[in-house]
Design a protein around this nucleic acid. Sequence first.
DNA 1: CACCAGGCAAGTA
DNA 2: TACTTGCATGGT
Length: 215
Amino acid sequence: MKGELEKIFKRLYFVFGPQHWWPAQSAFEVIVGAILTQNTSWSNVEKAVAVLRKNKLLNARRMQRMPVRRLAGLIKSSGYYNIKAARLKSFLEFFSRHYSAKLGDLAGQEPAVLRKQLLAVKGIGPETCDSILLYALGKPVFVVDAYTKRILSRHGLAKEDAPYREVQDIFMRNLKPDVKLFNEYHALLVKLGKDYCRKQNPKCEICPLRSIKKD
DNA sequence: CACCAGGCAAGTA
DNA sequence: TACTTGCATGGT
């Protein structure tokens, strides 16, 4: 399995090159994007983030002062805007209550502790949590999303209904805990998923991984 | 038109 | 515990 995962990474990197994730100008912007992109295309999120930037709201303190009603109106393009505005608020409350809204303090926390705390925040599930840990805070945690599961199961490397932690463990037990590697690997899996591993119209016959065999 | 997108929580039995 | 449903915009 170890060699298999490394082989897949090398192939993806050779084919697609670096993906430059996470596209954002600050750690806080990554966190906001991670919440807004839940079950939503990134292009819709970009528009919402642009609106927030224009309104100088890519800042924890200012965003927290904004009424949730108005915040929701600003992020409409990202979909589920009422839910997501509430989720941004619940994160902000946690962030200011436990870390004084300081990113440095947040990043200084132990990954295992932080993971448990973030998962307890309403609106932050496993993927959003791990995206924050890896892409905003630089912790060596592998992010699993729908594409990751689909790609692994289609290549016989995981059960189709494998739970989040099980898929995550496949990567984390077999790869060095390297932030750069985890960053690029997950981004490449999303790229592969978008281009060749959609739910409908999967282009398996021309997938760059089609010749990768296990054992 | 149907279907999907870098999920999550709440409701039901 | 194991399904199901609501949330919502914008692109293919």
